[in-house]
Write a protein that binds this DNA or RNA. Structure first.
Lengths: 229, 229
DNA sequence: TCCCGAATGCTCGAACCAGAGTATATCTCG
DNA sequence: CGAGATATACTCTGGTTCGAGCATTCGGGA
């Protein structure tokens, strides 16, 4: 048997839910929604069913019964196996112990920022700031609501984490926007000049050569020799 | 033609690289490595070649020539099309303007934390803290090195962002570990009791019923009625 | 009574991705 | 000077993921 790769955390969610009681897939998805776990784990129907199949194939869960209510499609109810319980604990422990490298899309965007001009970037970042502020209030009111319901913090730590990351991103973006706008970001002058020339050109876009030349001193073919002063 | 989905940021990286000059796929991957962009964009060979194919199919890049050196496999050199340049700018703008929901694995883990006992969790978090501290120093020395090479900050913003997120996570985890250990986290008493009973049981693991009962007051079938005091 | 829309519960295909595998060329080091 | 390590440059395969689509049932209003 293929030695299971732990790629989709939705599988962990399934194991965790079945820990409580046997369920059929649709019920799992509804339960995850009800508990807002779909904010922390990517949930979509197609993936859910294939994840369940894969868990069955690896003996971590098993069909407990198939039932039907009225004339609806039959539902298969699954239960956790011993191997599944062990796997849940192991996997969860691993995730807590060892940070995994993530690739946020915004980070990718930052990598290629110089393609756009500084003024455009600053404008876009201001829009991002507004959106982030909205997200912050959304998350924070959701947290308050959970507290008001008497749900102890232990059960909503994921929201706290989310909030912490959101605030960190917001701070970063605010600082970045400011440093571009007021020109204190190192290299912004060169960046601006590059695009000033470009906007005079036919396309209005940065010309390939310009960018290549600007980068050349730092990334020579021989490998990042520092530009001699 | 299928209206291209913007899922893999590696495609954006390809567009950005070809903006500078035509390249063949292997050269792209090496350039990304050299510039450390593989820290911000998930790069692997298999994906690179399929991403390139897909971009060709959608007319965003095109084969410029095929060449061979000595007896090596032939290389196809690609160049950016006008449509590709537009797409790069649009996509990049979108990524900067609009935050996209990410699903960090650690957040998923936090969602299912109560499966483990508080002492185990605290121990695992202490290991995570050590690992995160190591990552922080790694990222920060890399940044300093880049600065020492004279590379202006505009070209390494992604590292700054990474560092900001890392610090935020570190702070969060340190706080969480402390609040579990000293018992100030709300609900930790109940959590501890749950597992104290479990460890006396045959399996040494939390019994399904225990967890279900603990959760029941907050997530009733009718939908999250607050437990009446 | 009958139709609309929401909820229930799953199926399917196409795209996507990861990473091992392949094959040659060059470099290195005793 | 030969053998292994490293670099070059893909190719293949099989699993994963997405999201639209399908089929049924139920409740509620005209």
């Amino acid at each position: 048997m293929a030695p299971r790769t732990r790629n989709n955390p939705l599988a962990l969610a399934v194991l965790a839910l079945l820990w409580e009681r046997p369920m059929h897939p649709y019920e799992m998805s509804m339960t995850l929604r009800e508990r807002r776990k779909d904010e922390s784990v990517r949930l979509n129907f197609g993936s859910l069913y294939s994840v369940v199949d894969s868990l069955v194939k690896h003996g971590l869960i098993e069909a407990a019964s198939t039932e039907r209510e009225g004339n609806r499609p039959t539902r298969t109810v699954y239960r956790l196996t011993d191997a599944g319980a062990t796997e849940a604990v192991d996997w969860l422990s691993d995730l807590l112990r060892t940070p995994v490298k993530e690739f946020p899309q915004f980070e990718a965007a930052l990598s290629f920022l110089p393609l756009l001009g500084p003024d455009d970037v600053a404008r876009l970042l201001r829009m991002r700031i507004a959106a982030l502020q909205l997200n912050v209030t959304t998350v924070d009111t959701a947290r308050e609501q959970a507290r008001a319901q008497g749900l102890p913090s232990v059960f909503v730590l994921e929201a706290d984490y989310d909030s912490a990351l959101l605030h960190a991103e917001l701070d970063f973006v605010v600082g970045l926007e400011a440093s571009i706008t007021d020109g204190t970001l190192e290299g912004v002058a060169m960046w601006r000049e590059l695009h000033a020339r470009a906007s005079g050109s036919a396309s209005g876009r940065l010309e390939p050569e310009e960018l290549a030349e600007a980068l050349a001193p730092y990334f020579t073919p021989e490998g990042a020799a520092p530009p001699t002063a």
